[in-house]
Amino acid sequence: MAIYTKKGDKGETGLLGGSRISKDSLQVACYGTLDEANAALGVAYSQIENKEIKSIIRDIQKQLFVVGAELASDEKGYSLLKEKISGKDVTTLEDIIDHYEKKLGPIHEFIIPGETTASSHLHLARAIIRRAERLIVNLSKTSNVRLEIIQFMNRLSDALFMLARAEVYYSMVEGIKEKVIEKIRMGKTSHELTLEMALKMAKVAERKAAEIGVPIVFTAVDASGNIVLLHRMKGALLASLDLSPNKAYTAVALKMATHELAPLIQPGRELYGIQVSNQNKIVTFGGGYPLKINDEIIGGIGVSGGSVEEDMEIAQAVLTLFEEERGGLH
């Protein structure tokens, strides 16, 4: 069967149901714009790696065909439709919006498209959907357009906005993971944090903690974030058994003290949202420090049990010992 039929050579096109209509009519503009949006979504789909977002986009593309079919139908064609957009579809979009808003948090400034190629195409699709919505609202003034379609189009642009934000977030997380994996692939560093050194640091941490009067958990990890030693003082908080090693892991994974992360995770900053990455192992308050020899990270420490200030004070005592002893590491 030939792609071309020559039936549209006079500027008309056929509707589902058999009647013909001018190609520059408002009705054709409505479903034609949906086709345009679907194409933009296809580009985004081909670029996105996150399976959850890809699945949502594919479902949306199928729903746009459903909306388009209804808008491209005459009275007879409408009666032949087997599937129509319903209130349930509107609710599904609202659930998507709520899910990602909860995950990503509120925004406090306008978002300029362009952070990733895929998110840019999602923003493009969102803008096209907005245009389609305006056309459909205009069509509803002279033709019978169901309320569910108008509602669906309104929610869809918001859903695409949230998906664009999610795409940027997941791309950032994957970038961080790749850096961590690359560090692990590099193998052992030229210096190693030994168990002997970790034990010395644990003794200093316990002595300083006893001096302050707070029982703590002290953790030392190697350059790959693996635990070398975990030491728990009697009476230390159970929560510290998670926080201490996670602080040490964070310091190694991000190559910085954990208290330095706080300003970087605020909305709009470069590491916003990282605290929920890496299986929620990232800690963004004080008590975790990387251990360095000549700018080479050989491990990290984490202290948890007191206030943030107390944890940092104890950790500083450990770092002092490390500075004195690091010449003996090999």
Rank of each mutant, 00 (worst) to 15 (best):
T91P: 09
G286Q: 04
G114S: 10
L139V: 05
L26N: 05
A72G: 10
K51A: 15
G286A: 12
D242A: 10
D9M: 10
A40E: 09
T13A: 04
S244E: 00
A132C: 06
E324W: 08
I181G: 04
G306M: 10
K102R: 06
M172V: 11
G273R: 02
E83N: 05
T284D: 11
L16I: 14
K208C: 04
K23D: 05
V214L: 07
I181P: 00
G306P: 11
K141L: 12
G32S: 03
K102P: 08
H330K: 15
Y249C: 03
C30V: 04
A202S: 13
R20G: 01
T320E: 15
E101V: 05
A198R: 01
L93H: 04
D98C: 03
L195E: 15
E310H: 06
K7R: 13
A166M: 03
P263L: 07
E94H: 03
S140R: 09
L193S: 03
G286L: 02
S55M: 12
D95P: 06
E325H: 07
V173C: 08
A44I: 02
I293N: 09
S277K: 08
Q316N: 15
D242Y: 08
L238M: 13
G8F: 02
G175Q: 15
E178N: 14
E174G: 09
K179E: 14
H121G: 02
G273L: 04
L41I: 02
M312E: 13
A262H: 12
Y45L: 14
M186H: 14
E133Y: 02
K76M: 07
E148G: 09
D158F: 00
I176H: 10
T194A: 13
